[in-house]
């Protein structure tokens, strides 16, 4: 009986020693976007073209189209030029998703933020935002297409 009591006591102590207090931590929701200095990997041709297509059409490029367009880019020595002419072909397609001029000018700041997120996957800095707001405001002939074209053919867009 004494032995049984001793074992029971030891067992109770053992179980009690393993019991751990549980803590639950929570974090605030934060939208994490890279800044441009972290983009140091050059996009491959298929990566570039599929991302460009997705940015312009808001839908995925089919595998067949990706192969065709990748081959086309490989057939032109100046890659920057190749990207430009491929994009210039995209923008002739009515299915391309580009905001209207009115939409852009109704809220230029939001347009600039959206464009940075769309093409650079990041927020603009204050300096960048100010530059584009001023640039678009001061030039009535600048269209959303022209802004998109500048972003999609810029150096930063070629890296991730």
């Amino acid at each position: 009986m004494r032995t049984f009591t001793l074992l029971l006591l030891l067992g109770t102590l053992w179980l009690g020693a393993c019991k751990e207090k549980t803590y639950v931590y929570e974090v605030n929701e934060v939208n994490v976007l890279p800044n441009n200095s972290e983009k140091d990997k050059e996009k491959s041709i298929p990566q570039f073209i599929s991302i460009l297509y997705a940015n312009m059409y808001q839908q995925a490029l089919s595998p067949d189209q990706m192969v065709d367009i990748s081959e086309l880019i490989a057939s032109i020595g100046d890659k920057q030029l190749a990207y430009e002419v491929i994009l210039a072909k995209f923008v002739t397609d009515p299915d391309v998703q580009i905001p209207s001029d009115t939409e852009m000018r109704n809220d230029i700041e939001q347009f600039v933020i959206d464009t940075y997120k769309r093409f650079y996957v990041r927020e603009p800095t204050e300096a960048e935002k100010t530059y584009f707001i001023n640039y678009i405001n001061s030039r009535p002939n600048v269209s959303p297409l022209m802004v998109y074209f500048a972003f999609a053919t810029s150096d930063e867009y070629n890296y991730y």
Binding site: Q65, I86, K89
Partner: peptide, 28 residues
């Protein structure tokens, strides 16, 4: 995927595009 690509107007369109791109490239 190439034939019929859009040729931007050299002054009215390409000029601003190049200015904006230059700004973006300078930052990068």
């Amino acid at each position: 995927h190439l034939k019929g690509f859009r040729q931007f107007h050299p002054e009215e369109e390409l000029g601003p595009i190049q200015e904006m791109r230059e700004f973006l490239n300078q930052n990068y």
